[in-house]
Design a protein around this nucleic acid. Structure first.
Lengths: 344, 344
DNA sequence: CTGAAAGCGCTTACAG
DNA sequence: CTGAAAGCGCTTACAG
C-alpha cells in the first residue's frame, strides 16, 4: 500500500487534471480552437489540429464531462431501470442478457449506462428523483407489471423512455419493443400439438404482465378454449414453476405436455415432474419460453421460444435515441423462433 | 402517441426545467440561500427555509447534477466495471448478485452506479477514457485474471478503485475485498473427507485467477499433495465444468468425490457424471463453491461454500468511499460458510 | 442569517 | 480559420 509521509491513512492528493486551458496554452492557441478540435475538428487548420493533438497527448487531457453537459444539456448517458420484484432480479437470467446487450448497444453510440433498481416504493422515489435531475438523457425500463407509478412519473416529466415489453396501461404514450409473445406461444402450441400431444397444459406468467396475458392468448389461438384444470399461474420464478406444475399434475394427472411461459419456470416444472416420477419428455413434454442461458444448462435441455434479446436491445436504444432527438414514441414488435432441443 | 401539430414525427419541446434562480425568485430570497437550503439547511432561517421549500414544490425544481458536480468536483456516482471474458458475463449468476447488491449498497449513500463492460481490448480503451473523464468518483471492478491493463491505467491515473477478489499483480496497490478462498476450500475438503470419501478430485478455476490458485491451495492444505490424475482445470463456465469432469473421470475412474471450484462448473460436472452413468451423490459426491442462485435450482441441490456477497458488496462500497475521501487502499478478507445440501 | 460575486470547465455564436 | 466573450446552473468563501 502506498503510504503518505504525512498521514498514514491518507494518500497524496491526486494532481489536478489538466483543463482545456492547459491544452490551449501548450498548443499556443485559444481554448475555442481546442474545443472545436475536440468536437469534430471543423474550422481548425491542419497546423492548429496538429499542435492541439500533440498538446492533448502531452498533458493527458480528458474533457470534463460535467462541464460539457452543463452547456450542451446532454448527459450522454442513459438509465437502465429495473423495476421488478426482488426475487425476479436475482434469479432471472433474462435480465442479464438484456442488461449486457443494452450496455453494448449504448457503447456503440458512446453512451454510458447507469443501472437503477427500483423494486420497492422507496427506491422508486429515489430513482425518480435521479432520472429527473438531468443525470441521464433518457431511460430504458423493464417493468412488466401493470400500473407502475414510476412510468407515469417519467412520462409526466417528459423524460424519454422506452420500455422492454408492452408497458401495460401505457401502450399509447410510451415507446416499447417487445417480442411477439402471442405468436411465440402459437408456435409452441402448434409444435406440441403436431408432436402428437393431446392433453396440453399451460403454466402462465402473472396475469398483470404482457407475457402472462399474451402467451396464454396465443396458446388459446391454437388450442381453442382450455379447460381450467389445464391452466396454472406462475410468477416467473423457479419455485413458482414448480408449484404451478404440481398443481397441474394434481388437477390433470393425465396431461402429456405443458407449455411453461418462461424458461426459469420450466426448470421448476421439470423438477416437479421428476419429483412426481414423470419423465421429461417421454411422459410429459415441456416447452419453455425465452431461450435464456438456463435453457442450455437445464437437463433435459429446453425446447423453447427464442426472444431476440440482442435485437430487442438494439431497437430499444435506437428508439430511445430517436426520442431524445425529438421523435414521438413508437412500438416495435419482433418475431420469435421455435428452438427444438430435448425437453419436448 | 402524442403528435405535434407542426411536425408529426417531433414532439413538442419539453418546457425548460426550473433553475435555482427560479426557485429563488418565487421564494423571494437569493440563490445562495436556496443553495444552502439544498445543502443541509445550515445558515438558513426558519422563514426562509419554509419559503424555499414551498417554492421548490411549486416549481418542481430538481437540482442539475452537472452544474453541481462542476463546482464540487464530485460526480456522486461510481462505476461498476466488469472486465471478464464474454462467456462468463452472460452465464455466471455471481455477477448478478454482486451487481445488485453493489447497486443497493451505493443507493444507501445516494450514489449512482454506472455499469461498464470491458471484455475486450477495444472496450477497455473506451471504458478507460470514460473512467478518467470525471464521470465517476471511483470504480468497483471485477476482473479476476492476472495482468489486466485497465487496472494499471486506473491506478496510474489515481482513480479510486476497489476490486472484487484479489487483484493478482496489484495486491499491494489496489484495495480489494475477497472471500477467504483458501479457507473455504479447506472447509469443503474437510467435509468431503469426513464424509468418508477417499479418492477426491478437484476441478479448479483458471490458474491465473485467485480462485483458481487459492481454492486449489486450500484443498491441498487438507489433502496434501494431490496426484495429477485427480486435478483438472476449468474456466468457470458450465461447459468447462463438464469437460473437466469428463477428463477427471477418464484419468481417475475410481474417484468418489470431487470439489468443483464454482457452482456453475459444478452443474456442468454433474451433467458429465450423469452422462457417464454415475449417480450424484451416491456414486460421486460433488461440492461446489459460491452458493450462487444456481446452487438451489440445480438437481441435486448443491452442497457448496457460501461467499457472503451482500457483505462483500457493502465492504467494497465502504472501501471505495474511504478512498474517495483520501484513505489509502486496504484489503478485506471475509469468511466463508459450508452449506450442506444434496450433492455431497 | 443573507446577498453579491467569483468561479467550476466547457461550448458556441459572433466578429474579424 | 481564429480568438474573445458570454453563459450553462450551480456552490462557496466573503462581507455585512
Amino acid at each position: 500500500m502506498t503510504v503518505s509521509d504525512h498521514n498514514p491513512t491518507r494518500r497524496r492528493a491526486a494532481r489536478p487534471r489538466p483543463t482545456i486551458d492547459d491544452v490551449a496554452a501548450v498548443a499556443g492557441v485559444s481554448r475555442g480552437t481546442v474545443s472545436r478540435f475536440l468536437n469534430g475538428g471543423h474550422n481548425v487548420s491542419g497546423t492548429a489540429a496538429e499542435a492541439v493533438g500533440k498538446a492533448i497527448r502531452k498533458t493527458g487531457y480528458v474533457a470534463n464531462q460535467h462541464a460539457r453537459s452543463l452547456v450542451t444539456q446532454r448527459a450522454r448517458s442513459v438509465a437502465f431501470v429495473l423495476s421488478e420484484p426482488q426475487e425476479r432480479l436475482f434469479e432471472d437470467p433474462n435480465f442479464n442478457v438484456l442488461l449486457h446487450s443494452c450496455t453494448r448497444a449504448l457503447a456503440t453510440h458512446d453512451l454510458a449506462l447507469v443501472l437503477a433498481i427500483a423494486g420497492e416504493e422507496e427506491d422508486r422515489r429515489r430513482v425518480g428523483r435521479y432520472l429527473t435531475s438531468g443525470h441521464v438523457d433518457g431511460a430504458l425500463i423493464v417493468s412488466s407489471h401493470l400500473g407502475n407509478p414510476l412510468l407515469s412519473e417519467l412520462v409526466g416529466r417528459g423524460i424519454p423512455v422506452v420500455a422492454c415489453g408492452k408497458p401495460l396501461g401505457h401502450e399509447r404514450d410510451v415507446a416499447y419493443v417487445a417480442a411477439d409473445d402471442r405468436d411465440g406461444a402459437r408456435q409452441m402450441a402448434e409444435y406440441l400439438r403436431s408432436a402428437g400431444h393431446r392433453r396440453i397444459g399451460i403454466v402462465t406468467g402473472p396475469p398483470d404482465t404482457p407475457g402472462g396475458i399474451d402467451r396464454l392468448a396465443g396458446f388459446r389461438d391454437v388450442l381453442g378454449e382450455i379447460e381450467p384444470a389445464l391452466i396454472a399461474h406462475g410468477d416467473y420464478t423457479h419455485s413458482g414453476g414448480e408449484t404451478a406444475m404440481a398443481c397441474l399434475l394434481d388437477q390433470a394427472p393425465d396431461l402429456d405436455a405443458v407449455f411453461v411461459a418462461s424458461d426459469l419456470m420450466a426448470t421448476g416444472a421439470i423438477d416437479a415432474l421428476r419429483h412426481a416420477g414423470r419423465r421429461v419428455p417421454e411422459d410429459v413434454a415441456v416447452g419453455g419460453f425465452d431461450d435464456s442461458s438456463i435453457a442450455l444448462t437445464a437437463r433435459p435441455r429446453l425446447t423453447t421460444i427464442r426472444q431476440p434479446f440482442a435485437r430487442i436491445s438494439a431497437e430499444m436504444v435506437r428508439l430511445l435515441l430517436g426520442q431524445i432527438e425529438g421523435e414521438t414514441p413508437a412500438a416495435v414488435i419482433l418475431p420469435t423462433d421455435l428452438v427444438v432441443r430435448d425437453s419436448a
